[in-house]
């Protein structure tokens, strides 16, 4: 019937749209990664040339890779325990929980780029709030965004500030969804707050936490906005993570072919990582 045909045609439209918007640029990226192509010049096919350079010779890329892993590991290692503890504390209070929760999740409501700008001001060596408050408790001026060592720490701190609330929110929602009898039973059995959390509540929210861990992991690896607005990758290359390096190669230096190769390597890396993790975490996610 006519309407059947019409539906068939219309059904294809989203597919065509996806193809155009997503698949095409994606395919271009893979295509150009095989070329020596700086914007404005003629692309020269070099096959795996870019990749070989990146993996074997580019020390900035190696450093970027390590920085990315360091950033991710440090941020997650602090966000998770901190987030869970605060979520548990919020869970235990009876009055004003909503108010406190709103305050706690405020950092989540601003764009990461904006967070980077805010913290750049806060971390200012001479006039920033951070050094001011530190001086009040006797700690000298830390060269936050000036020193290669401290600048990456500053980036990590910003990430923690912004994303711990995410963990808190999800963990709190998970805890509140648990039946109150569970908590009461633990109370009647005489379990302390810590034991209650560790043995009784936490196992119940493990699937939720696993999912959140997963999301945060991928997000942290890709972190860009806050780092770029805060340090731009500097000083030097001390905060140049893979994302930053990728952006710089493509948008600042216009090494299109090279930049695409970085993207491809990063993509492959994340895909492999995700697969490994899912395999390990499977038994936690699905409580059969």
């Amino acid at each position: 019937m006519a309407s059947r045909k019409l539906i068939n045609i219309i059904a294809w439209l989203p597919v065509i749209y996806s193809f155009a918007i997503i698949i095409m640029p994606f395919a271009s990226m893979i295509y150009y990664s095989l070329f020596d192509y700086d914007l404005g010049r003629e692309p020269i096919f070099i096959g795996p040339g870019n990749f070989i350079t990146l993996i074997l010779k580019d020390s900035v890329f190696h450093k970027a890779f390590c920085l990315t892993l360091l950033y991710t590991a440090a941020a997650l290692a602090i966000e998770f325990p901190l987030g869970l503890i605060i979520a548990f504390l919020l869970y235990r209070i009876s009055y004003g929980r909503t108010l406190f929760t709103i305050i706690v999740i405020l950092p989540l409501t601003i764009a990461p780029a904006v967070a980077g700008i805010i913290w750049r001001l806060l971390f200012d060596v001479s006039y920033g709030h951070v050094n001011y408050y530190l001086s009040l408790i006797g700690i000298g001026r830390i060269p936050w965004l000036i020193s290669p060592q401290w600048s990456i720490i500053a980036c990590i701190i910003t990430d923690i500030w912004q994303w711990t609330p995410f963990i808190i929110l999800v963990a709190l929602a998970g805890l509140l969804a648990l039946p109150k009898e569970l908590l009461e039973s633990a109370y009647v059995d005489g379990a302390s707050a810590w034991v209650t959390f560790k043995d009784i509540l936490f196992p119940r929210i493990k699937p939720l936490i696993a999912i959140v861990l997963f999301l945060r992991l991928v997000d942290a690896l890709k972190a860009f906005d806050n780092i770029y607005t805060m340090t731009g990758g500097g000083p030097g290359t001390s905060t140049t993570t893979i994302s930053i390096y990728n952006y710089l190669s493509l948008m600042t230096f216009y090494h299109v072919g090279y930049g695409c190769a970085i993207s491809v390597i990063f993509l492959v890396f994340i895909i492999i990582l995700i697969n490994i993790i899912i395999r390990r975490v499977r038994h936690i996610l699905w409580r059969e």
Binding site: P179, E181, D189
Partner: peptide, 20 residues
Amino acid sequence: LTPQERNVAMVFQFIVVYDM
């Protein structure tokens, strides 16, 4: 006194069993 201190035991309508 708390339930612990009173030494009471309670079984609920909602079956409570810990993840162990």
